[in-house]
Every structure is written in structure tokens, then in C-alpha cells.
Design a binder for these strands. Sequence first.
DNA 1: CATTAATTTTGGCCATATACCAATTTTATG
DNA 2: CATAAAATTGGTATATGGCCAAAATTAATG
Lengths: 140, 140
Amino acid sequence: MQEITGLELSPKKVEYLKFLFKKGGLVRTTDISSQLQVDPSTSTKTIADLAGTGLVEHIPYRGVRLTEKGQLYAEFLVNRHNILSLMLSHYGLSSEEACAETARFESFVSKAAVDKICSSMGHPQTGVCGKIRHISCGIP
Amino acid sequence: MQEITGLELSPKKVEYLKFLFKKGGLVRTTDISSQLQVDPSTSTKTIADLAGTGLVEHIPYRGVRLTEKGQLYAEFLVNRHNILSLMLSHYGLSSEEACAETARFESFVSKAAVDKICSSMGHPQTGVCGKIRHISCGIP
DNA sequence: CATTAATTTTGGCCATATACCAATTTTATG
DNA sequence: CATAAAATTGGTATATGGCCAAAATTAATG
């Protein structure tokens, strides 16, 4: 039984979660808005949306942090990115190209597909965009 | 110099163009709406949008057809689909899975990336979703 | 050929996702 | 505590995609 489809979040929300994961801990609205290049008011609103999903906890005027559920989900998101970009890098795309390309379409690739790709590649430990952990495949 | 980025059309519009390409000739609004499972009024409006791009010609109450430009573009779209789904099929996805998966993200994959993947695979002639032609790579 | 049926289009309206600006509120700082 | 900085709220905007009801057009049938 699969509880995560990988298609739960919109592209921008995926960016938010990946950033929160990489940053870690309590992250300020301004950090997010400058990183994602949007107005602070935009990030505030998106954060409110995300808080509604239970993936993040928002402490007004203080910051946002991933919940436990969000932590797990974000780990999947980062893994998906790393696996897909590693795959593309096997087809003549440079690391930078693979990373940028993946960023555009990753949010539309299912966990089921990513799991198969990951298995097929032999659960690699390192991608072109960062380390790959395989908790969601049951590999620590 | 590359005139097509592959990112010009929204996902739904890509579906329209691929369908028009596969159907060929003058296609009725009803054909489209039943194929894409949308209300006829929705397809009428999307067709109007597409007509604005010069990719299709709309003859009111008669049907829609690809322009010459649209024909070339749609051929790229179908090729992109076939190349990406073929790629996925190399990672343990069945033809059906690869096809369905690709359908979700293909509109966010650039022509530049597709060209590299295509070259890297040796310009295959057959995919899991259909024949692949390589006119846009300069291979007839 | 005239009426009816089917198809298509229009107009109105709605939802989601993103985004900005201006104004306000809260927190931080000197 | 006064002011600056950060964050939020409220308003508004665009793009995409969608539906329904009504009107227009074309097709079909007696």
C-alpha cells in the first residue's frame, strides 16, 4: 500500500519543501522569499497553504519548520530530484543541465516511477545534485 | 540557434496538439472533447487559444486542423513523448506505465534535453508508444 | 423545404496556482 | 520607547482549465 503518490504538491510547493529540508530547523519567511525569488507576501501565503497540509508548522512572525511528516515527505522530494537528475545525466546532460531540467518536471513524476528507476539504477548513493538516501525504499 | 524550446505550450494544449496530429486532417470539436474528456465548450475555448498561436486553424462549426507550423511542432511533441516513454521503459516501467507517466510531465521537458536523450539512445526508430521520427534532429 | 435534432459556440461563472503591491501588524534594536 | 526591520493581510492580477445554460449554426428527416 502506497500512501505517497508523489503528486500531492504543486511545483512551487515542492520547491518550498526542498528548501526547508536543506535549510533545516526554523526558516524565516525572508530566507524563503529571497531563495525562491518571490515577494515575502507570496511566501507567507504559500506557507499558510503548506501548513494546511500538515507538512509544515508555521509560527507567525517567527518562521516555518517541517513537521515530522513534512520531513519524511521532503526527503522523498529531494531523493526524487536526485534520482531523476542522475538519470538524465546518463543521457549526456551535464550536472547543471540535469538539475535544471529535473527542477522543471519533477513534481509530475510519481513515487512509483521513481522507485522503479531507483531500483533499476541499483539504488545509487550519490547523484549529481547531492547524496541519495533510500529510506523510502526501505534502504537506510 | 534553437527556435523551439519545447516549453511553449501548457500540458492540456500539448494534449490537443498530439491528438490533432494523430487524428490528422480536419478534426471536430466533439472528437476532441470526448477524447480529452472535457466539455465541448472547454475544447472550443482551448482551440481558440491555440489558434492564436498559429499552430492550428479553426473553421467555426467545421473543425480544427494543424497549420504547417503546428504539424511540425506536433511532430516534435509526439517524438518527445515517445522518446521519454522509451527512456522510462528502460527503467522497469511497463509500456503503459511509461506512457502514462510521461504524459504527466512531458510538457516540462525541453527540446534541448530531449535531443540529448535521443542522441544518447542512438536515435531509436521505435518507442513503446509509437514510431519515432527524427526530422527535428535532422534525421529523416 | 420546413421543422426538428445535433453540434458548436458564447457568455457567465468558478477553482487553483502564483504573484505583486500597499497597508498594517509584530518584533527587534538603538 | 521610538523607530527600523520583518512578516502578514487584504486587494488585485494573470494563466490555466473547467462547467453550465443559452444562443447560433449545421445536419437530418419527414
